[in-house]
Simulated assay, not measured.
Amino acid sequence: MKIPLLDLRGQYQQIKGEIKAAVNSVLESGQYILGEQVEKLEKEIASYCGVDYAVGVASGTDALLLSLKALEIKPGDEVILPTFTFFATAGVISHLGAIPAFVDIDPISYNIAPEKIKEKITDQTRAIIPVHLFGQPAEMDKIMETAADYNLKVVEDACQAIGAKYQGIQVGNFGNAAALSFFPSKNLGAYGDGGMVLTNDKLLAEKIKRLRLHGGERKYYHQEIGYNSRLDAIQAAILRVKLEYLTEWTDNRQRVAVTYNSAFKENKLDGMVSLPAKKIRDSTHVFHQYVIRTGDRDRLKLFLEKNGVSTGIYYPLPLHLQKCFKGLGYQEGELPVAEKICKQVLALPIDPGLNDEEISYIVKLFASKMR
């Protein structure tokens, strides 16, 4: 049995008629950058996420970058973020000449540990980027309280968490802005790169619209130095089709996660493997990834893949120990929770179409190797 981490080909087969029609409509229109399809998608995403404004950009990375730029993060400013996240969360800070201030994570949610944030705040701190990692919301009430106490901006990295809720409220509604990614493997993925900024601040939305278009509101007139970060109309049209299925796919991801949990417990493996756990009551995990922890990760990964099961490691090295950040002076052992977790995490297949037989096969492989 061969089981991919995510079956994008199978997903396409389910909706290819709608996708082809959507792409053809854009090709016939002659409008390939921004335009009507992007404007409609922005309104639909804003409605789905419960925010006032959504601005389409070229990628999730750019959504973070433009948000920080619009909030006037400058060279020398410090921005607090978790060390356990995708590189872009930190990379955009450095691109602006600002300084990433890495914080350790909570061992249950893998998100930034709120109680550790205050320890990193200095006179140069200007913002916090909480990451809703793997689809589970960060503890936004505590984070926003700290931000208010120290007058800090907040940009939510919701690139893996569209549709997730924290205490009944959609992620993207807490900070000054939030970033979404439409990378193909995301819960709502394009067939190329794409991203979006969410905000409830009209002036901020207008500024990000300028920044994505070389700093201008109309052709050849530039109010500031901006970027080329426009969402393609074809990607917007594809995303509009897929958005209609997002709730169903999210429900299925949650079903897969519940089935995994049950199967691990039935096979008496839950004491040997740390399963994903919700940290906050009334929060909603959308399972961009189903990530377990085990002390025998590398051997199990090799064994699973030899038996046809694709897996992933998100992430093998925390950001504070990456070579490119060596100049910041972090030492091994400084952020111990993340360092330990990086050696243990293993992402299992989480395709919305995964069936009970496939999940049972994966868990039985675990059982055969761990006993």
Rank of each mutant, 00 (worst) to 15 (best):
R212F: 03
E78I: 04
A113M: 10
R126Y: 04
G353K: 03
L204A: 04
L317S: 09
K306T: 13
A158T: 03
K116L: 15
A147R: 03
A179T: 02
E115M: 12
E332G: 10
D141W: 04
A164C: 05
Y260H: 03
L346V: 05
R218N: 12
A161Q: 01
L328C: 03
K165I: 10
K2R: 11
L34D: 14
K340Q: 14
S25N: 12
K153L: 06
K20N: 15
L246N: 03
V258T: 14
K69S: 12
N111I: 06
P316C: 08
K343I: 11
I15C: 11
Y315L: 14
I45T: 04
K207D: 07
L27T: 13
G163L: 02
F84D: 02
A277R: 13
G168V: 09
I15P: 01
G215R: 06
S229G: 05
V363H: 03
K326M: 11
G168W: 04
V51S: 02
A21D: 15
F87K: 13
A178F: 03
K142D: 12
A347D: 08
G192I: 00
Q136D: 13
K301G: 08
D298R: 09
G353E: 06
F366G: 02
A179G: 02
I225L: 15
R293A: 13
D201N: 14
D104Y: 04
D351G: 02
S47N: 15
D298N: 14
L5I: 11
A101T: 11
